[in-house]
């Protein structure tokens, strides 16, 4: 178990391990307890418009019943957090931020909220269980839960008499669902889902494999690949910015950076030898000049080789060979465009 922002989290499960748990998600199905994720509720007349003036992505692109990946920036374009926004109605928006950043997001929104719009931290009112992998639909069907709705869509239902939100979301790259039961009903739901997951040849999955799975997709982790000093433009998250929106914190800085071109960008690294990149390792070009550093790195269980994300000078090009300083040992890696594996959550 590991302390993760005050939450006691399993890195891996007994009889599992990162490699087995990772393979279960890619080949069958895995069950994650990510109840540490933050939850907050923005309610009142104009809640949707208010949220749209705060977060980067354009909430007018989706309809009620759909969720959206978005970010909250500070005025200088730094990322306070990346999060998922669930649009229920124009006056009811549910938000799932990262555990460690929930307080900061609640604080920034509360300070900006107009009269009539309330921002409520609901961190321990809901649990979050993720069912991810090619057998996820079969698991949902066996449980009598909704499945097969469109990617990023969600359905509110109940299970054994307790309400649960079922979303077609996840952070593994696989087809799957995230379930948001009430906090009190989460253990019983875990037990019920785990039984079916095991019957489908799946297993519980800890934080270790959650990291290898998301890294294989090139999905950013806040605090490593996106942060108060790594902007959405640098992290190639511009697709989740509503550039045509008139306002949101950081807009003018980000727009200027986008137009001028960022001085550094997030690239993928694929090891050509047995080196494994890890955060903060230096990256050099063929001439030996430092061009940036690794932000996320791990051993890819699918490719059986080292992979990583690195913030490198914008002049870096895909296909370039670079050298990563792996604790004093030079490792040769190729600059690539993630994802590293050929899977799709759709």
């Amino acid at each position: 178990m590991a302390d993760f922002g005050g939450w006691e989290m399993p890195i891996e499960y007994p009889d599992g391990g990162v490699l087995k748990e990772h393979a279960a998600v890619r080949e069958r199905v895995g069950l994650f307890d990510v109840s540490h994720l933050g939850k907050m509720q923005v309610s009142g007349p104009g809640a949707r418009e208010f949220v749209n003036r705060q977060f980067t992505n354009d909430l007018s692109r989706i309809d009620p019943g759909q969720a959206q990946y978005s970010m909250l920036c500070d005025v200088s374009g730094g990322v306070v957090d990346d999060l998922i926004v669930y649009l229920r109605t124009d006056s009811d928006v549910f938000v799932v931020p990262n555990a460690a950043n929930t307080a900061a997001v609640v604080e920034q929104l509360t300070a900006a909220a107009p009269d009539g719009v309330t921002v409520e931290d609901q961190h321990t009112r809901f649990g979050v269980l993720a069912v991810q992998g090619p057998r996820a639909d079969a698991v949902m069907q066996s449980l009598g839960l909704p499945y097969g709705h469109e990617y990023m869509g969600f359905v509110e239902t109940d299970f054994q008499g307790a309400p649960v939100i079922v979303c077609r979301t996840g952070y593994t790259g696989e087809r799957g669902y995230e379930l948001l039961p009430t906090w009190e009903s989460t253990p019983a739901l875990w037990d019920a889902v785990m039984e079916v997951v095991a019957a489908e040849g799946g297993r519980p999955v800890g934080l270790g494999a959650r990291d290898t799975l998301r890294t294989e997709m090139g999905y950013p982790l806040h605090g490593q690949d996106l942060s108060s000093t790594i902007s959405p433009v640098q992290a190639r998250a511009g697709w989740a910015v509503g550039w045509n929106k008139p306002e949101f914190p950081g807009r003018s800085t980000l727009l200027a950076e986008k137009e001028a071109g960022p001085r550094r960008r997030l690239f993928g690294l694929l090891a050509t030898d047995r080196g494994i990149p890890r955060p903060h390792m230096q990256v050099k070009d063929a001439a030996g000049s430092i061009i940036g550093e690794v932000t996320s790195g791990t051993f890819s269980p699918t490719l059986r080789t080292g992979i990583g994300l690195a913030l490198l000078e914008s002049s870096t090009s895909e296909g370039m060979e670079v050298t990563v300083d792996v604790r004093g040992r030079p490792s040769t890696m190729t600059v690539v465009r993630p994802p590293f594996v050929d899977v799709s959550p759709r």
Binding site: I11, E12, L19, I276, F299
Partner: peptide, 8 residues
Amino acid sequence: LGDIVYVS
């Protein structure tokens, strides 16, 4: 250590 992936 968990799953060992590299030994030097």
